[in-house]
Each structure stands twice: as structure tokens, then as C-alpha cells.
């Protein structure tokens, strides 16, 4: 558990967990474990997980956690972009 105190290792562990969660959700949808509104909610959850992964990469891998001004800017733009993708997904 000491290793998880390292922000880089923690970031990597988060990315693995979030990626596994996205894939598990997608497999559940494709195998018919979710239906109707569940499929749409699953898709929305997959997009939210992608947004979370992108934030981890920006803050820890690219080091924006140490640049609050830029971190905030990137988070806002990425958040707006995620909302755009979510909107396009939900319209279909």
C-alpha cells in the first residue's frame, strides 16, 4: 500500500481501474445485460469515465497538478467537450 502514496503509481492504478470499468460496462451492454434506458446510462457512464481518465493524464502524467491555472482551464474545456460528446450521444 506504501506504493500507492506515490502520485504516479496512484494515477496509473486509477487509469487501469477506470479503463477496466469502461470495458466491463461496454461488455455488459453488448451482451444484453443492460437494456433500454440502462444502455443509455451505461453509455453516459462510459463517457464520464473517459473524462475522468483524461483528467488523470492531464494532472499527473502531464504535470498540470502543479500548475493550478492551466489545470483549471484544461478541466473546464475538457468538461465542456465531454458535455458536447454526451449531448451528441444522447440525441441519437
Amino acid at each position: 500500500m506504501r506504493a500507492l502514496r506515490d502520485p504516479l503509481i496512484r494515477a496509473w492504478a486509477w487509469l487501469i481501474a477506470l479503463s477496466a470499468a469502461s470495458t466491463a460496462l461496454a461488455v455488459a451492454v453488448s451482451q444484453g445485460l443492460l437494456s433500454g434506458r440502462g444502455v443509455t446510462l451505461g453509455g453516459a457512464a462510459i463517457l464520464i469515465l473517459a473524462w475522468a481518465k483524461a483528467n488523470v493524464i492531464l494532472s499527473r502524467y502531464l504535470g498540470l497538478a502543479q500548475a493550478p491555472f492551466w489545470h483549471r482551464g484544461f478541466r473546464i474545456v475538457l468538461g465542456l467537450y465531454a458535455v458536447l460528446l454526451l449531448g451528441l450521444y444522447l440525441i441519437a
Partner: peptide, 9 residues
């Protein structure tokens, strides 16, 4: 790219 192309239904 991965979730949008491969996962979203």
C-alpha cells in the same frame, strides 16, 4: 477515442 469508437452504443 477508445470509448467513443469502441464502446458507446
Amino acid at each position: 477515442l477508445f470509448p467513443v469508437i469502441y464502446l458507446l452504443r
